[in-house]
Structure formats: C-alpha cells, structure tokens
C-alpha cells in the first residue's frame, strides 16, 4: 500500500525524463509542475476548479486537468506538458491559423489538440468539437482554435 502522510519524494516521468520530486500528500499536479523543483509553468492556473482547462496536461497521453489530480496519483506515470511538445504539428497549426489572442488558454488547447492529433484514424469534426468543449478561451478565439486543431486531428475533412 502506498501511504503519504508527510512531504516525501516520488518519481514520475515528465516530458520523457525521469524526475524525482519531494511533494506534500495534498499537492495537486498543477502545483507540483509549476513549483521550483520542476519549473514547468506552461500549465496555467485558471479557475483551479476543473472548468477552464488552462492547466491541461497529458497523463499517459490522455488529457487531464492538472488542478484536479493529486500528484501522488500519478506516481510512476508519464506526464507531458506543453514544454514537452517539440515541433509537434499542433504548434505549427496554431501559428498558421492565428489560433491565439492573449495566449493564457493556449497551452491547454495545445495539449488537447496534440492528444487528438495522435489518433487521426478516429478523428472527426464532431470528436474535435466534443474534446475542445473541455477548454475555455475568454478571448473567444474558438473558430481559429477549432480550425488549427481540425487541421491536425482530422486533416482529411
């Protein structure tokens, strides 16, 4: 049985690299990622209530809202943050479609779009819309974001 009752070191894989971090048992993944030990500030604290999606990262390639995950839950699992996207097609697609305004929500949308782009065989406009409903853009740049994500999630229409 795993038991954490005080600050303790746990291990996981972040952006392809094994990392050991000392965490509090009640720490959220968002807090751990953005903390001094990792310094990965790409995942943004927005609502911290699971509504906005600005903190979205991938856990084992599945999008999750990192404000809604306790860090001990993801011990030994693979985390991908926006910093881990290296020349991913979704990044160029956002540039090509001018899919950002203030940019605060962008990393969350990029992670959802990247996850969709990894499963093009099941891609469809309906699936893209459904997945993108998980994130909020307060600048309301939804059409450009949809166009960018669609270009990599279901490139053949």
């Amino acid at each position: 049985m795993k038991s954490l009752t005080r600050p303790e070191q746990i291990s996981f894989n972040v952006n392809g690299e094994p990392r050991d971090v000392v965490i509090y048992p009640g720490e959220t993944l968002l807090y751990t990622l953005r903390g001094d030990a990792l310094g990965l500030t790409g995942a943004k604290p927005g609502c911290e209530n699971g509504d906005c999606g600005a903190c979205t990262v991938l856990v084992n390639e599945i999008p999750v809202k990192s404000c809604m995950v306790l860090t001990p839950e993801v011990e030994d699992q693979a985390i991908t943050t926006v910093e881990g996207l290296q020349n991913a097609p979704i990044q160029q697609a956002f540039l090509d479609h001018n899919a950002f305004q203030c940019g605060y929500c962008t990393s969350g949308f990029l992670m959802v779009g990247h996850a969709l782009s990894q499963d093009v065989d099941n891609g469809s406009p309906e699936r893209t819309v459904e997945w993108l409903r998980s994130n909020i853009c307060r600048c309301t740049g939804y059409q450009e974001i949809y166009d960018a994500v669609s270009s990599v999630a279901h490139p053949n229409g």
Binding site: M1, K2, L4, T5, Y24, P25, G26
Partner: peptide, 13 residues
C-alpha cells in the same frame, strides 16, 4: 494545492 495536512493512501486490496 489542498489544505495540509491531507494524508494520501493507495491500498492494493
């Protein structure tokens, strides 16, 4: 971050 102290347990059975 959640209020501390919060203890976390993950039993196997």
């Amino acid at each position: 971050m959640m209020p501390n102290p919060l203890h976390y347990y993950r039993p196997d059975t």
